[in-house]
């Protein structure tokens, strides 16, 4: 075994995991499905690490495996879920690959923006994303309607989106 190559592979996999995951979610937005595809992708990458050429960018190589799993998933789900049209997903994945240089900055911006969130909004985000509660569960706990929770989560995502955009623009100006 080429230990140095194995080492490079493992480090690049760990460093790029969040980007591969985000690439998957951009085309398979359902969290459980995206998580499964991501896990399958990680396993496939480990199985194929010897094929990796350290002279090449890791992310496009890894996303190639992820996209194969995405395609398989779409085939399985075609009659069970509403999915973006196949040609649109193909265009999106091409576009997503071209956006890689900005991904680290976007993540750093999101982490900073999360710090600015009011406590109540942060708790809501945690309930939904970390504890994976459904909107209905959160609504019941807060004696609110599911519709109100949907609206609140939308407001938080929009606020984070605007905060990220603002921060990236400010950095570009400086």
């Amino acid at each position: 075994m080429d230990a140095k190559k194995h080492q490079q592979f493992a480090q690049r996999l760990v460093r790029n995991q969040n980007k591969v995951f985000r690439y998957v979610v951009s085309m398979v937005v359902n969290r459980a499905d995206a998580e499964e595809i991501f896990q399958q992708t990680c396993l496939t990458l480990w199985e194929n690490w010897e094929q990796y050429d350290p002279a090449l960018d890791f992310l496009p190589w890894a996303c190639g495996f992820a996209y194969n799993h995405i395609r398989n998933h779409r085939r399985k789900m075609e009659n069970r879920q509403v999915l973006l049209d196949r040609d649109v997903v193909e265009q999106l994945q091409q576009r997503a690959l071209g956006r890689q240089p900005s991904l680290d900055d976007r993540r750093a911006a999101l982490l900073a923006c999360l710090e600015e969130l009011p406590e109540e909004q942060r708790t809501s985000i945690e309930s939904y994303y970390e504890r994976r509660q459904t909107v209905e569960q959160i609504a019941e706990q807060r004696s609110a309607t599911p519709n109100a929770i949907y609206k609140m989560l939308r407001r938080i995502r929009t606020a984070l989106f605007q905060c990220i955009t603002r921060r990236l623009a400010a950095e570009a100006m400086s």
């Binding site: 969040n18 979610v25 951009s26 976007r106 999101l110 970390e130 995502r157 990220i164």
Partner: peptide, 24 residues
């Protein structure tokens, strides 16, 4: 497409940062 990817990335990042595996 860029606008969609920017917006969906907020959802993707939140899903990632709050995963239970401490990967971040």
């Amino acid at each position: 497409q860029d606008a969609y990817l920017d917006f969906i990335d907020v959802h993707a990042l939140l899903s990632w940062e709050f995963r239970g595996s401490d990967s971040a």
